[in-house]
């Protein structure tokens, strides 16, 4: 009754343990890398019905974000501009360009253009644009350098951890109210977050808002 199990089976527990650990590590590594908005959302760049370039309008022309998204300071959502807003200029600039035909159609027929929404928070998240842009949180914090994007792409993960980064330490992310819509603003060398950022937080009475109901109801 000897030799029922060959000798190598003595190592079986070790092989199982090591194999399990290696497999587990691979799965965890893969999931950490892939199963997060940093992978699933960042880089989303849908094809839009009109090849509108933020790089030209906000970058080269230097239009303020609020020229088109004029409701962002008053409303919880940042509005897509009406076709009328486009036509203010494009009734004389590129007024016969075929690329702008959908805009002209929309303007004349009072039908909306079917833009594809890029940044879409889940419906259980109640993000309020006006609260943020009126308290020193710049557009660029969540949307990236839109003024350098020919086609808008999803630049930041907008995950819950991403929100909490800022909600836990707002002083590292706020900027002077006058620079909120200046996407290229960088804190100067004499800017110290613990002093200047904290002063802004104090001045605007920002609370860290880490409770669930700050964003979820």
């Amino acid at each position: 009754m000897s030799n029922v199990f060959p000798k190598w089976t003595n190592r079986l527990p070790l092989i199982a343990l090591v194999g399990g650990l290696v497999t587990g590590a691979c799965v965890i590594a893969g999931a950490t890398y892939y199963f997060t908005p940093k992978y699933s959302r960042v880089g989303y760049q849908p094809v839009q019905p009109v090849s509108f370039s933020h790089e030209i309008h906000a970058g080269q022309l230097g239009l303020d974000c609020r020229y088109c998204h004029n409701g962002v300071e008053k409303s919880w959502f940042s509005n897509i501009p009406a076709a009328e807003t486009c036509m203010r200029c494009h009734n004389s600039v590129l007024k016969d360009d075929p690329r702008l035909q959908p805009i002209r159609d929309a303007f004349e027929n009072d039908k909306p253009i079917k833009w594809v929404q890029v940044h879409k928070t889940p419906d259980y998240v109640y993000f309020n644009h006006s609260v943020h842009v009126n308290r020193g949180v710049s557009c660029v914090k969540c949307h990236g350098r839109v003024d350098q994007m020919d086609e808008v792409k999803h630049a930041k993960p907008l995950s819950m951890a991403f929100c909490l980064d800022c909600h836990r330490s707002p002083h590292e992310h706020v900027r002077p109210q006058s620079e909120v819509f200046n996407l290229g603003w960088e804190p100067g060398e004499d800017w110290v977050a613990e002093r200047d950022g904290a002063a802004l937080v104090n001045k605007m009475k920002l609370r860290t808002s880490e409770s669930c109901s700050a964003c979820h109801r």
Partner: peptide
């Protein structure tokens, strides 16, 4: 197959069990 983080994608983000995400 899956590429890297931040790769350009024309398709909308995949939402598994989207019943709460999209009410």
């Amino acid at each position: 197959l899956a590429g890297f983080r931040g790769d350009i994608s024309r398709k909308p983000p995949l939402e598994v069990f989207a019943d709460m995400d999209r009410q």
